[in-house]
Amino acid sequence: MKSARKKAIAGKVLVYVILIIIAALMIIPFIWMLSASIKSDREVFQMNPFVLIPENPKWSNYHDIWTKIPMLKFVENTVFLTIVVTFLQLLTSSFAAYSFAKLEFKHKNTLFFAYIATIAMPWQVYMVPQFIMMRKFGLNDKLLAIICLQAFSAFGVFMMKQFYEDIPDELCEAARIDGMSEYRIYASIMLPLSKPALSTLTIFTFVNTWNDYLGPLIYLKSEAKKTIQLGLKMFISQYSSDYGLIMAGSVLSLIPVLAVFLCLQKYFVEGVASTGLKG
């Protein structure tokens, strides 16, 4: 009995040691980013000796980022895009995924295959035909172009479908026998049950849209429509690279993403109290 407890304690200690090592590995880049964001160009790449906080911290980087480029406008655009895309993505994906996971219909496998197949295609392959098509629709240099590109991704449908499949069919069957319509089942049974999946998808979509670079680069050209990532790239010019500013921008752009993660992560925890793997 005693040795078992000892073993348990040793196990716990081991788990914590590993966790702390992992946490350290994970946090290094962020610390480095913070440190680089208050350095001058030359100090950023100085390794020998490496200093965390330079003698003369260049706080001005955090000020310049707002004045050197119209960062506020970029933030506005990015926030708008991210919110719209995430909302559309969640709504349409979970809707379609319900059908794929819980309903039987003609051409189900063919349609689903079409989704999977497109995930496998690198965007670079169809970027040009897509661009020519979008321009024909009059979407060049419109924020709407990015929404159209991002909001209907196959990834979301695939992910939601996999989660719905794990929810027992019996729940739906019972509801059907009770005379509920499929729409009611989706709204009152599936949606509430899929909070963890929905929050996961929210985070992924949010991060993707927030950090997207190539899409905005191709489609958004006028200054008033650019996004944060394009703004950050503006600093990297051919003949000089302003790393301190880029890092300051990266730190700023990271904050909303982390905030969203922190807000949503409680949904992963939900139910753990009753389901946790108790050793």
């Binding site: 379609a96 349609l111 909001a151 209907f152």
Partner: peptide, 9 residues
């Protein structure tokens, strides 16, 4: 159910 996503997609 599929249509909203599929049409855009």
């Amino acid at each position: 159910f599929i249509a909203p996503n599929f049409i855009g997609f």
